[in-house]
Design a protein around this nucleic acid. Structure first.
Length: 503
DNA sequence: GATTCTACTTAGGATAATTGTG
DNA sequence: CACAATTATCCTAAGTAGAATC
């Protein structure tokens, strides 16, 4: 881990050293007292070399390794569920190592222990063959619980949470649940108008709790914020969602950028990804926020009378199956559908249509704040793209000069040959200009996408039937939108969605 | 009503595999 | 074909939500 910046952090070092001390023998403990006097470079080099050696392996050796992995997958990567053979998602337990949470995690550097068969609970059918534990070991427990979907589970020691072995997204079970999720979101689409008028009315409620709920719901609906459940302090990184927002996370501006009543959000959300947004809101929302913030310190809860549990209970009353996260799914899918409608032109080429699809996808990713680190190769590849553009510009300029020359020539000679030559020059210029245009949109796209992660929304928020219908309607092969794994996950949608599917 | 536990979905980074390019 | 760039897969952390327990 020495390559990583986080090993230099004090929290990481303290956690690691204290856990390491616990593993030492009494003798070792007497000798090894300060982390900063320890030199790990030798063991670090050992692993670096090992990785390099594996990379440098001859082709046949690599092939052999691949086949061995495949065999392992064949043996352990499948299960029988209700008579059907299904792929398992994660069929390996997690190896021991040093825990690295995301963001400013108080437990970074702690030792994550090796999982032993004695830690593992197996869940299988009553009359199925119980998998054998490794020789000399036994399972913690074998149970037959048909009400849950996991096949095995163990408790991880750092966060004291349960880890599960579950089915692959391609399985029938996961597919059905995925579909149900989108069906709930579609039902929300039908009643969201009513819900909106309800919460708008609640902005004026006598009850503080109802007002807070109504403002929070407005944000969840409008901005696709996460619910934001309360979490144990000191156990995880300090991140928030809607209901757990604190006064310090919002700033009110009576007027900003020419708009009245602007709310500026700045907080760390899931995975410590920063959410920053400046949004004009309605006057009543603004005034309510002012009131919620009165006589509070920066560290106080903005919605002190609200919990995700009470919000979800209220939502359940408004629509069966409705919870806060459904708004995010609904908003994302509707955004994709709307953007696709706005951006796709039937006469475009397939490549141009795919570009439109990716733009629509991007709009959703921006809405959901799905970010990624700028790729390491970004600057370099951007540079080559820029030089390509420069070269193309030069070509265009040359072609223009050539065209001018040809025009003069034709004026002077006026024969058929010079005319066809002139036309040829014209077509060349046209083609070059087109190419230049494509390159510069590519550059713009690249720049605007460098910190946007498209995969998360594609996999979790966008009803695949929207994409499938779009592909069918515009003659785009579905493989251009979904790769093999994605097609397996969305098999249920590939089968059923016709070109006129509407979310 | 608060807290803890359980089960599941959603998330970005690391790494492996594939594709593009000179 | 070698190497770089891009894309797919793997990995596991970090959320949501509801039930059980205090």
């Amino acid at each position: 881990m020495l390559d990583h910046e986080y090993t230099t952090k004090e929290v990481f070092q303290n956690n690691f050293f204290s856990d390491w001390r616990k593993e030492m023998t009494a003798e070792e403990r007497k000798v090894i007292k300060h982390l900063d006097k320890c030199d790990f470079t030798e063991i670090h080099r050992y692993f670096v070399d090992k990785t390099a050696a594996r990379k440098a392996l001859p082709k046949e050796e690599k092939q052999k390794l691949k086949e061995e992995a495949k065999k392992l997958q064949q043996e352990f990567g499948y299960c029988i569920l209700d008579g059907h053979r299904e792929k398992v998602g994660n069929f390996k337990t997690e190896p021991p190592g040093l825990f690295r949470g995301r963001g400013d995690h108080p437990k970074m550097g702690m030792l994550k222990r090796r999982v032993l068969p004695e830690d593992v609970t197996i869940n299988c059918g009553r009359d199925s063959e119980v998998p054998e534990p490794p020789v000399g070991h036994r399972w913690k427990e074998v149970r037959c619980d048909r009400t849950v979907t996991w096949l095995a589970a163990w408790t991880e020691n750092v966060q004291n949470s349960v880890k599960y072995i579950m089915l692959n997204p391609s399985s029938k079970l996961k597919g059905e649940r995925d579909r149900e999720k989108y069906e709930v979101a579609r039902r929300l689409k039908g009643v969201v108008g009513e819900i909106r008028s309800q919460y708008r009315a609640d902005w004026k409620s006598q009850e503080m709790k109802a007002r807070q709920r109504a403002v929070a719901l407005y944000f969840i609906d409008k901005l696709a914020l996460r619910a934001g459940r309360e979490k144990e302090e000191g156990e995880t990184a300090d991140t928030v969602g809607c209901c757990s927002l604190r006064v310090e996370h919002v700033q009110l501006h009576p007027e900003a950028d020419g708009c009245p009543y602007v709310v500026e959000f700045d907080f760390l959300g899931k995975d410590s990804i920063r959410y920053y947004n400046k949004v004009p809101v309605e006057k009543l929302v603004y005034e309510n926020l002012q009131m919620f913030m009165e006589n509070k310190g920066p560290g106080d809860d903005l919605f002190d009378r609200l919990t995700t549990a009470s919000l979800n209970k209220h939502l359940q009353d408004l629509m069966d199956g409705l919870t806060a996260k459904v708004f995010r799914t609904c908003n994302a899918s509707l955004t994709l559908q709307g953007q696709l409608r706005a951006l796709t032109r039937a006469e475009d080429s397939v490549a141009a249509k795919i570009l439109s699809y990716n733009r629509a996808n991007r709009a959703v990713a921006v809405l959901c704040n799905h970010q990624r680190a700028t790729p390491k190769t970004f600057e370099k590849s951007m540079q080559t793209l820029r030089s390509k553009i420069e070269a193309k510009k030069k070509q265009v300029a040359e072609a223009k000069a050539e065209l001018k020359k040809a025009r003069a020539e034709h004026k002077c000679r006026g024969d058929g040959r010079s005319k066809s030559f002139l036309e040829k020059r014209g077509r060349l210029l046209e083609r070059l200009e087109e190419q230049l245009g494509r390159l510069s949109t590519q550059a713009t796209d690249k720049e605007e996408s460098k910190q946007v992660a498209l995969g998360t929304s594609k996999l979790n928020y966008l009803d695949p039937r929207i994409s499938v219908a779009w592909c069918k309607r515009f003659g785009v092969p579905v493989e251009k939108i979904y790769n093999k794994t994605q097609r397996e996950k969305f098999a249920w949608a590939l089968d059923m969605a016709g070109e006129d599917f509407e979310f």
